[in-house]
C-alpha cells in the first residue's frame, strides 16, 4: 500500500527534522535512495519549485514528492491523493508534539534536557543539510557519462554566490531562481 508507506516516511521526516524547511531535505534524499520514488535531479527541481511558490518550503516539498509518487500509480487524481497523504504525514507529528508542548509550555522552556538536546541537534541539522548539499552539487555539476564537464555551470554558481551575498542579499530567492531559469534556457545549460 503505497499511501501508507508515503504517510509513514513523511511522518518520520516530520518527527525528526528539526530546524525548519531545509531540515527535511536530508530525509527526502534518504527516501529517494531507499524507495526510488523520485531521482536526485527531480529533488533539486522540487527545492526550486518549493522556494518559488507560496507556502512553507518543507510543506511544499512534501506535497511535491507525494504528488509525484502517487502520480506514478494513475495520474492527476492519485497524484493529489499522494500529495495530501504526504503532507498529512509531515504535519501529524508536529500537531501531536506542539499540543503536548503547549500544555507544558513553562516547563518545556526551562528544561535543561530540552535545551541540552537542542544544543546538540542544531549543529547536527546543519551537518545533514550540508550532506544533502553535496548530493545536489553532484547531481548538478557532474556531467552525464561520456559528456564533457560544463564550465558554465560553476561559473554561474560563482556569480549567484556573490550576488546573493552582496547586492542581492535582501532580494527574495525567487528572483535568482527565475534569473537562473532564463540563463539556463538561453545558454542551453542541459548540454
Amino acid at each position: 500500500m503505497i499511501y501508507l508507506r508515503l504517510f509513514w516516511e513523511f511522518f518520520k521526516a516530520g518527527l525528526f527534522a528539526v530546524g525548519g524547511g531545509m531540515a527535511t531535505l536530508p530525509f527526502l534524499y534518504d527516501i529517494s535512495d531507499r524507495t526510488g520514488w523520485f531521482t536526485h535531479a527531480q529533488l533539486a527541481d522540487m527545492v526550486a519549485v518549493s522556494e518559488s511558490t507560496p507556502g512553507p518550503i518543507g510543506v511544499n516539498m512534501a506535497t511535491y514528492v507525494g504528488f509525484l509518487t502517487g502520480g506514478h500509480v494513475g495520474g492527476m487524481a492519485t497524484g493529489i491523493l499522494g500529495a495530501a497523504v504526504a503532507t498529512l504525514g509531515l504535519i501529524t507529528p508536529s500537531i501531536i508534539v506542539i499540543l503536548i508542548v503547549s500544555a507544558f509550555l513553562e516547563r518545556f522552556r526551562s528544561s535543561r534536557y530540552v535545551s541540552g538536546a537542542f544544543y546538540g541537534l542544531r549543529p547536527a541539522s546543519t551537518a545533514m543539510i550540508l550532506a544533502a548539499l553535496v548530493m545536489v552539487v553532484k547531481a548538478t555539476f557532474l556531467p552525464a557519462v561520456g559528456a564533457a564537464f560544463d564550465w558554465r555551470l560553476p561559473a554561474l554558481a560563482v556569480v549567484l554566490l556573490v550576488l546573493t551575498n552582496t547586492a542581492g542579499k535582501k532580494l527574495h530567492p525567487i528572483v535568482f531562481i527565475l534569473a537562473s531559469a532564463v540563463a539556463g534556457a538561453v545558454l542551453g545549460l542541459a548540454g
Binding site: L153, P173, L187
Partner: peptide, 16 residues
C-alpha cells in the same frame, strides 16, 4: 535547459 540553470541556483541557496 531552464531547470539545469535552476539547479545551480538551488545549490547556491542551500549553501547560503
Amino acid at each position: 535547459n531552464a531547470f539545469a540553470g535552476v539547479r545551480v541556483c538551488v545549490c547556491v541557496l542551500i549553501a547560503n
